[in-house]
Computed example of a mutant assay.
Amino acid sequence: MKCFIIIGLMVLLSSCDITSNANKKINGVSFVASRDSINNGHIKPVLELHANYVAIMPFGFIRNLEHPRITYNSNRQWFGETKEGVEQYVNAFKAKQFRVMVKPQIWVSRGEFTGKIKMSSEEAWKELEETYSNFILDFAKVAEETKVELFCIGTELETFIDHRPEFWFELIKHIREIYSGKLTYAANWNEYNRTPFWNALDYIGIDAYFPVSDLLTPTVEDCKQGWTNYKADLEMFSENLRKPILFTEFGYRSVDYAGKRPWESDRQMNTVNLEAQLNATQALFETCWDENWFAGGFLWKWHHKHETSGGSENFMFTPQNKPVEVFIKDWYARY
């Protein structure tokens, strides 16, 4: 009898541990680089949000969609976008027990969409591959040296991937030689199902700007109904590849029609609608966060000067000092 009791307790404890692990999610924020170093005052509001992960985002720059040379880590960039800045940000957050994803990104002049980067010759493609490799491998070294848990190999680069898939498989091999943590790629919401190299990575990364409602101020239920267009496909995709899905970016602007084209950052869309942002965000959490195939995600986006960021007149993505921040804080606290 004593033996059975011990075995029963072991099974109970084991099941509790499994349940606990199942409830653990990546409750992340995308922490925007600034001109300056950061300190505990900048980190405290992220702690108070109950986030457990931050994405640190260094930037490389190219002149236009056909230009092959990426410029990065220059003294003309903001501190937080450079190697030195990434190291300082990572170390500051890790001192407060955060986990970190390093997510290098490209900025095309005038803000053109990175998914349309396309070279006009083989010579230009080769140069782009060389400069992109340098950019990514340099930050993979930083990620390894700072013991970062997760590294993102690229963000919304669908045409580059469509035209040069072999390069990406080789790049992943080189990253693995340098970096020992987990890997993902940030595919655009309409790109992920044709990205060819998920089997070489640890997470299926998606920038989750799925259109969920055409309404000016959608309700939570309107947006949840919109998610029925995608949820089953996401679950099946995860199950077929046997890999969890991570929303490498998610969020909505506090504007009218927030769920219609969530990727839009056009400043001409400037009619503030805090309710639309809140309802669309709540629908995303209620739709995805408890699913076994879902690993969590990184809120887009969070600025280091919390007290002056966002607010009731702000029409951009940040949840800071808006009703949606209170909702996210409550939701993150559950996990």
Rank of each mutant, 00 (worst) to 15 (best):
L49M: 14
N52R: 06
V54W: 03
A55L: 05
I56R: 10
P58C: 04
E66R: 12
Y72F: 15
S74P: 05
R76G: 09
R76D: 13
R76C: 08
R76I: 12
W78A: 11
K83P: 06
E87A: 11
E87I: 15
Q88M: 10
K94S: 10
A95F: 06
K96I: 02
K96H: 14
F98L: 05
M101A: 09
P104R: 04
Q105S: 11
I106L: 15
V108W: 03
E112Y: 13
T114Y: 09
G115D: 10
I117M: 02
I117S: 02
M119L: 08
M119H: 01
M119T: 02
S120L: 15
S121R: 04
E122G: 11
E129F: 00
E130C: 10
T131F: 11
Y132A: 09
N134Q: 15
L137A: 10
K141F: 07
E149G: 05
E149N: 07
E149V: 03
F151Q: 06
C152K: 04
I153H: 03
L157M: 14
E158A: 12
E158G: 04
T159E: 14
T159N: 10
D162T: 12
R164Q: 11
R164G: 03
P165N: 01
E166A: 14
F167P: 00
L171R: 05
L171E: 02
I172C: 01
K173P: 01
K173R: 08
H174F: 04
S180V: 01
